[in-house]
Simulated scan of single mutants.
Amino acid sequence: MTFDSFVYDALPMRVVFGAGGIGQLPEEVRRLTLRRVLVLSTPEQRDLAERAWDLLGDSAVGIFDRARMHVPTDTVAAAEESAKELGADGCVAIGGGSTIGLGKALALRQGLPILAVPTTYAGSEMTPIWGITDNARKQTGRNRSVLPRTVVYDPDLTRSLPAGISATSGLNALAHAVEALYAPDVSPVIAAMAEQGVRDLAAALPAIGKNPADPAARAAALQGAWLCGACLGATTMGLHHKLCHVLGGKLDLPHAETHSVILPHVAAFNLPAAPRARAALARALPDDDPVAALNSLTHRIGAPHRLSALRVRESDLPAVVDEVLADPYANPRPVGRAELERLLAEAL
Rank of each mutant, 00 (worst) to 15 (best):
P206L: 12
A207K: 11
I208Y: 06
P215V: 11
A216V: 14
R218I: 09
A221N: 05
G224K: 13
W226C: 09
W226I: 02
L227R: 14
C228D: 08
A230K: 08
A230G: 01
C231S: 07
A234S: 15
T235P: 10
M237T: 14
C244V: 15
G248C: 11
K250Y: 12
L251T: 10
L253D: 07
L253H: 06
P254N: 13
A256E: 08
T258P: 12
I262K: 07
L263I: 13
H265V: 01
A267E: 09
A267I: 10
A267F: 13
F269K: 08
A274Y: 12
A280M: 03
A282L: 04
A284F: 09
L285W: 05
D287A: 15
D287M: 00
D287H: 13
D288K: 04
V291K: 01
A292S: 12
A293E: 09
H299G: 05
H299P: 00
R300E: 14
G302W: 11
R306C: 01
L307M: 07
A309S: 12
V312E: 00
R313L: 07
E314R: 14
S315L: 05
S315Q: 14
S315F: 04
D316P: 14
L317T: 12
L317Y: 13
A319V: 14
V321A: 08
V321Y: 10
V324I: 11
L325Q: 08
D327S: 14
D327R: 14
P328K: 01
P328R: 04
A330W: 10
A330I: 05
P334W: 06
V335K: 02
G336T: 08
R337Y: 08
R337I: 02
R337L: 00
A338C: 00
E339D: 15
L340R: 05
L343V: 03
E346C: 00
